[in-house]
């Protein structure tokens, strides 16, 4: 006691806690530092490039032009169009795959002959490489001449159509929904399987109808799973590039923001300065969306604080 009398007991505890907190942080640091370096550095560069006039395909020197790239961006009709396509594509693909995924999960959450096999069939599209999904749908399903869809429609007397060029956006959405419905189905299936059977049993004993049970017990129970599905789906689907590349090549009405920004730089225009300005705008939009998404996530983690 005498030797440590300069430190009160409280201070000693505090010092120990501090040391402990530091020790606890150590396992986290490699992942954190790696993520910061690899994911954040590029944006610092983009921020700087956005103020330059810089064409990648000429030797003209870079020039500082302030906010001109940004004011130009807002006046660019194609950028606004791409923003609209992005919203339409993401929202419809996420909603449709969540709805179908939930319905299919309900269908599979019962014992029946071949249950596991049917589940295996349904998850397969999620595992297929997006580039392959795009190519196979474009050339074998939607194709005008020997496409399966037109062939089926012909059998019932409907004329063949050029699906991809008539409905560029919606053909892409169909392929996205095909790939992401299984993912949503997996999440919802986990949700359904986590439902306590005693509650369902009790509802049955009380004579609750099937629909009442669904809307008043199952659906509220599934809510966090639905939110999780929407969140994860949005994160991935807002970045779609491969499907557009393979199906329409960015043809009319199917260029979303990632595709558009890419075309400003490597894709065609080599307008590095302007492409960087667009990138920053996209990042700002992403931060706003992320803020909203993280609030949803925060709700999911609630109750774990204690």
């Amino acid at each position: 006691m005498t030797s440590t009398s300069t430190l009160s007991r409280d201070e000693q505890v505090k010092a120990l806690q501090k040391k402990d907190a530091r020790r606890r942080r150590i396992p986290l640091l490699p992942a954190l530092i790696f993520t910061i370096v690899v994911t954040q550095t590029p944006f610092v560069f983009s921020l700087y490039f956005g103020f330059l006039k810089w064409r990648g395909n000429t030797t003209a020197p870079r020039e500082w032009i302030g906010f001109k790239n940004y004011t130009d961006a807002f006046q660019n009709m194609f950028f606004r169009e791409a923003a609209w396509v992005s919203i339409l594509m993401t929202v419809s693909a996420v909603l449709l795959s969540v709805i179908f995924g939930t319905l299919i999960a309900l269908l599979l959450d019962r014992k029946f002959f071949g249950q596991g096999f049917v589940r295996t069939l349904i998850i397969t599209p999620f595992l297929v490489m997006p580039v392959v999904a795009g190519l196979v749908w474009k050339n074998q399903m939607f194709s005008f001449n020997f496409g399966v869809i037109n062939w089926v429609l012909n059998q019932v007397g409907i004329e063949s159509r050029e699906w991809v060029s008539e409905f560029p956006l919606w053909t892409i959405v169909i392929v996205l929904v095909w790939q992401w419905t299984p993912f949503m189905m997996l999440i919802m299936l986990a949700g359904l399987q986590g439902q306590s059977s005693s509650v369902l049993e009790a509802a049955k004993v009380d004579g609750a109808s099937a629909s009442a049970t669904f809307f008043q017990i199952t659906l509220p129970h599934l809510r966090p799973y639905l939110e999780l599905g929407v969140l994860l789906g949005s994160i991935y689907l807002i970045q779609v590039y491969d499907h557009i590349f393979t199906i329409t090549g960015g043809g009319p009405g199917s260029t979303n923001i990632p595709f558009f920004v890419n075309q400003r730089s490597f894709g065609a225009a080599f307008a590095y300065g302007s492409a960087s300005a667009y990138s920053i705008l996209v990042v700002i939009a992403a931060i706003l969306i992320a803020n909203f998404g993280l609030r949803v996530l925060s709700g999911l983690l609630e109750g774990e604080e204690a």
């Binding site: 560069f45 923001i257 990632p258 960087s276 931060i287 969306i289 998404g293 993280l294």
Partner: peptide, 17 residues
Amino acid sequence: FFFISTKFLPIVAAILP
């Protein structure tokens, strides 16, 4: 949240750097 938020950043916005 920081980790997850990096997934929201579009890869296309980082490609040039």
